[in-house]
Design a protein around this nucleic acid. Sequence first.
RNA 1: GCCCGGGUGGCGGAAUUGGUAGACGCAAGGGACUUAAAAUCCCUCGAGUGCAAACUUGUGCCGGUUCGAGUCCGGCCCCGGGCACCA
Length: 942
Amino acid sequence: MNEYDPKEIEKKWQEKWEKSGIYHAKDKSDKPKYYSLIEFPYPSGDGLHVGHPRPYIGLDVVSRKRRMQGYNVLYPIGWDAFGLPTENYAIKTGKDPRVVTKENTDTFRRQIQSLGISFDWSREINTTDPKYYKWTQWIFLKFLEKGLAYKAKTEINWCPKDKIGLANEEVIDGRCERCGTEVEKREKEQWMLAITKYADRLHGDLDDVDYPERVKIQQKNWIGRSEGAELDFEIADSKRQVVKVFTTRPDTIFGATYLVLAPEHPEISSFKSQISNWKEVDEYIEKTKKRTDIERTADSREKTGVRLEGMIAINPASKEEIPVFIADYVLPHYGTGAIMAVPAHDSRDYEFASKFRLPIKEVVIPERIDKRNPPVQGKKSVERRNVHAIVKNPKDGKVIVLKWKHHPWNTFPMGGVDDGEDIIDAAKREVLEETGYKDLANGKVIGGQVRAEYFAAHKDENRVAYTSLVSFDLASEERDEISAEEDNAHEVLWMEESELTPEFMTHAEMDVWIDRLTNGHGAYTGNGVLINSGDFSELDSEEASKKIAGKFGKSVITYKLRDWVFSRQRYWGEPIPVVHCGQCGVVPVPEQDLPVLLPKVENYQPTDTGESPLANISEWVNTRCPKCEGDAERETDVMPNWAGSSWYFLRYMDPNNNKEFASEKNLKYWAPVDWYNGGMEHTTLHLLYSRFWNKFLFDLGLVPESEPYKKRTSHGLILAEGGEKMSKSKGNVVNPDKVVEQFGADTLRIYEMFMGPFEQAVAWSEDSLVGPRRFLEKVWRMSEKLKDSTDDSLILHETIKKVTEDVEALGFNTAVSALMILVNDLDKRVEVSKSEFETMLLLLAPLAPHITEELWQSLGHKDSIHFAKWPEYDESKIERSEAVVVVQVNGKKRGEFTAPIDIKESEAFKTAKSLPDVTKWIEDKEVKKMIYVPGKIVSIVV
RNA sequence: GCCCGGGUGGCGGAAUUGGUAGACGCAAGGGACUUAAAAUCCCUCGAGUGCAAACUUGUGCCGGUUCGAGUCCGGCCCCGGGCACCA
């Protein structure tokens, strides 16, 4: 036999497969369908690098396995070819983007085809093909028709370098995702898509799909659903005008000591007449408008704002008159653009209130029930204000603890606070009475109160205590005599602060104290029990929230998600198919006139006014209104590059249809995508957008499934050798052509699957490529020592099981490992049974399609291995009759023995104890306990 | 700051209803074959002690639960990703 020469066989099979079209999916079949999908690439001018094929190979393995398991598989590919890099290249070189795109896709196609991926090339699509974007435009018109596409003057993120409006998703750390330039704000008329109308379903339906948990979490965070309430605050002297605020914590309403409106709040001007410092207010509003988002968040620690003098709101719950502010920490787009500020229970409001010296009113406090001294039933219950004093000696950092003599308690100096008494004075008094120390300095209340229930044994009563913590520094060690009674009750200890744990200290509040002492004690933002809240006092947060929301407003749900800015002032995108008519306004281009073709231009440079280069082509812009036949102008904005990718998975189902975007029949057959693999970076962009488009089309009855993708997985990036991202600028890109040339496509495929867990980023390693190559050579050579036999072995069945299961769970690396183990085992034999060898080839076929096809057909098979039946394992052959049982003494391995799998426990113990290596550890000791885990371990405790 | 991942030999990584840590591969060292080299095959390969049998130690750090912890619990540290004044 010849040497293994991948160059010769790989090309040969690739051509044969494509010529016979064996990977072309059938639109009609008796077989069950399976639709596997990878994210179609953007064909950049740099060509493919070794990171691109990782997901293609992964799902190729799955797709090939499915075909062998009897499925009619659709595994398509195409090009997401609209977009900025090509356009920027066109600007620089003056080359037509159509030509550039053609060149790039040709390169990508050639490269991908050299890897033997079983894509159905007959369904190849390209988003820049008018036959494709005709339908992208058509879907846009549907959005328009249903009122979900609308034009709005909005503040947009503007990239001054690319001269383009950016969606929120394209702004990374306040910078343009593509070029890194700081993003500015600009007002512009933009086409918008009302994705927020679908926010609830995009959020809720995630429960029904098989996505990785982290993807679901990320999407949910992005959508940012939160349940809360809109509460009405009346404005004094304003003819019953109200300001609506949004809050997730209606339970804190009694603590709302002021209101804050976003500077952009539309109603501010309607109060202009009653605001006495309007000039100052207006200046602040203007200043905010000019600030970019980065500026607004960069100095986010320092709160700014202006009081609206003369404007007074009424807290509907407490009836108190409270001031109103504008401040840029309140965002216009979220909730109602106005908040009730509760400084005691919101850290931002707390900061603002501290700076502007506004009242801080505590209305929710944590609650603890003392587990060690729980309230005793039947005893009387006394409610009181308590104070705990933490007295520190600055000299050594030690703190006073009282050790009680007649109870098992360790407490701080503590006691009740009399009505009207200052907390700090009360604490001082208690410290003096209980310890005699009288020279206390820097008295400070640490945070708010805690409600604690406990049994006070020394007074034989249950107590509900509202406790505050006060800290002091000991100014001098001067000390008075203490009463005999106090002296008899407890001992005074000085202890290290680190010793004051919740376990040691008796106070049920101790964990709260520790948290406040270590993490600061600004606002208490947790839930708890209400105080100072009129009829709602004593209720817990949850119940109070419902009741308060009902009484002073209504429950509402809000989202962080915002509508999608759908206009780009660019050239290389789908023209938005509408015209502007002086008579009729915005008029959609009639369906029969689609597609609106992208005209050729002289100059691809966007105009300085920020309009699309299309605006300069008057013969294209000037047109007739489809409605009134009068003069009209074409829309010159184009769609963002996520438009084409929002529905491409549907087009694959019927790629050549020129009557519909896809026929109902084909959609019904193929939808949904069974398995969609893509990058984590598309979680909040493409994945969300395409779910949105699909749901929209579903609502129109145009697609049969409300969720486009049944199952989603994500691949990890392939990094350069040093662990850095591969990029042209760093010069560390590895081109797959070189690898295929040197090692062959099968080796590249095996290596990419073997190099690490599929979902994790892994660094490329040139050295490691030889491992997979040696493995394939071993397989190749093995075909020379076959014997005609149908023997099979335990390890073969184990491998079938392992590979079958691992591929489903993305465990490609362990599947390859299992095959290597099998091949090593077979290789050691003098002769290999032909049937075992063939089974091994079948298991390897999805991973290394060329070499397996070559060997398979050289064994006399006429049909392709890739449609041969996937092997099944025999459970009975995997069951081992014997097991190696490990013996542990006190948890350490001391020996092992082989025994029948069903050995009795008593037998196992006997054998274990008789092993010489075990005996010596137990002979002079008493065996306290023996544990037998069947077939695995005997554990002896001495 | 918050939300997700992750931390295991020289390297990539195996190992989860808690049960022999380091599978498989790379690199390294030794040997066989060869005039020689490549290729191939065999052996060694976490650290430490020991002639050996064997023993000690070891999965980011500290503590806990358990006969037994990479795996579970509590408290940290570090790295990667996402969000970020979202009320």
